[in-house]
Amino acid sequence: DPQAAPEKRLEDMLRLGELCVEVLTQNEEHHAEQQYHSKIDVLIDEAFKDMLSSLVTKFAAVLDGVLNKLSRYDEGTFFSSILSFTKPGMDLADTYITFIRQNQDILRDRVNDELYTEKVFEQWYSSSVKLVCVWLTDRMDLQLHVYQLKTLIKIVKKTYRDFRLQGVLDVSLNNKSYETVYNRLTVEEATAAVKSGDGLQGISMRDSDQEDD
């Protein structure tokens, strides 16, 4: 559940990151006098990489949970026909987007190193889009349920917009995974529009970076 994210662990990791930045700064100031600090540089760099990987992995696990819930609606599954009679809202997408924004704010508030923050955002975005891409590729021969489509469109659009606002460059935003996801969802949207009319209730892949909320 995105709302039950381990914020305490995240804050502990961010405190460690701040300590690494402080030690690295002190190390640079005294490097000329104490050559052995070069070994500390290596250790700190490795710690940064480990923390970065750990953070991205934790964020990806939340999205993976969202995608697992969407899998219940896969075409041809036992539950898909039953679930088709229900009319779920956008709570799943909205909760995940809230999770993204809350943790982006935590990172901005807790980490003073802009370069480190940018790397986290870039890798977080990249891993998220790749997860969605793989999930869709696994369903290449299936038509998406309208609920799957609406939820993914909203998540992909908001994710793209929010990470762009956080400074992720267009060259990273528009990577191959994103292009694949965008094209697939656009085709699914067109198919759904023909079959169900306004079944998407105005949700569309168009203008993914121009919405206000």
Results as ranks from 00 to 15, higher is better:
105 D>T: 11
201 Q>V: 07
100 I>Q: 14
12 D>A: 12
135 W>K: 04
120 V>C: 09
88 P>Q: 13
92 L>W: 03
75 E>H: 11
50 D>Q: 12
29 E>Y: 01
126 S>A: 15
122 E>C: 10
120 V>Q: 03
194 V>H: 04
203 I>V: 15
57 T>N: 10
141 D>I: 04
91 D>Y: 09
189 E>N: 03
137 T>S: 12
132 V>P: 03
60 A>I: 01
188 E>H: 03
207 D>H: 11
35 Q>Y: 03
13 M>C: 05
189 E>R: 06
112 N>V: 05
22 E>G: 06
21 V>A: 11
73 Y>W: 15
181 V>L: 05
35 Q>K: 11
174 N>F: 11
185 L>T: 02
54 S>N: 10
155 I>T: 06
117 T>H: 06
210 Q>S: 13
187 V>Y: 07
140 M>C: 02
86 T>C: 13
84 S>K: 15
196 S>P: 02
192 A>W: 00
43 L>W: 04
107 L>M: 13
37 H>L: 12
49 K>D: 12
34 Q>K: 07
28 E>L: 03
38 S>W: 00
114 E>C: 05
52 L>S: 07
207 D>W: 01
174 N>E: 14
1 D>R: 13
27 N>V: 00
69 K>A: 14
33 E>V: 01
140 M>F: 05
121 F>A: 08
170 D>I: 08
143 Q>K: 13
160 Y>L: 15
205 M>Q: 08
127 S>W: 00
188 E>R: 03
79 F>M: 15
185 L>M: 06
125 Y>K: 01
16 L>Q: 13
151 T>C: 14
98 T>F: 07
129 V>A: 00
160 Y>Q: 10
41 D>Q: 01
54 S>P: 00
75 E>I: 05
170 D>L: 11
41 D>K: 01
51 M>G: 06
179 E>L: 15
49 K>M: 04
106 I>F: 08
61 A>P: 00
166 Q>P: 01
163 F>S: 09
213 D>G: 03
50 D>I: 08
87 K>P: 00
90 M>P: 00
58 K>S: 07
124 W>F: 04
152 L>C: 07
103 N>V: 01
176 K>G: 11
132 V>D: 04
96 Y>R: 02
187 V>H: 06
7 E>V: 14
56 V>C: 14
200 L>E: 07
132 V>S: 00
92 L>H: 06
59 F>M: 08
72 R>H: 14
95 T>W: 04
96 Y>M: 07
182 Y>Q: 13
203 I>A: 07
102 Q>Y: 05
89 G>P: 09
137 T>G: 02
139 R>D: 07
39 K>C: 00
